[in-house]
Amino acid sequence: MLDKFSLAILLSAVGVLVIVLELVRQRKLEEGYSLLWLAAGFLLVALPLSRRALDQVAGLFGVAYPPSVLFLVGFMAITLLLLYFSTVITRLNRQNREAAQRLGLLQWRIRELEKKLEEIADR
């Protein structure tokens, strides 16, 4: 039988899973980015359902009250997600910078070409 705490985590995790899947379905979230969310969600659904697994993990980390393992899993998932997002932001930042540099260089070239064209047209 589930205690209230585990039940609350279970329901929240189901909620998160539904939202994530719906966002992917609507193409508001890419499959690749949803994987970490889904993995965390499944863990938070599976652990409360299997008291034995939860107890084992709790024993592994020396946790006296097994349901607080769910906190640990949630916290680790969020930390991983944030770290992952930091790397994504870094990559986007670099790509953004390179695109902006190329845009500036290309605009200059276009303007030079237009000037040359005008010179030719004026002849």
């Binding site: 902006a100 540099q101 845009l103 500036g104």
Partner: peptide
């Protein structure tokens, strides 16, 4: 001078 304008502050 020749001027290259970046679209935002880099």
């Amino acid at each position: 001078a020749r001027v290259i304008t970046l679209p935002f502050n880099l």
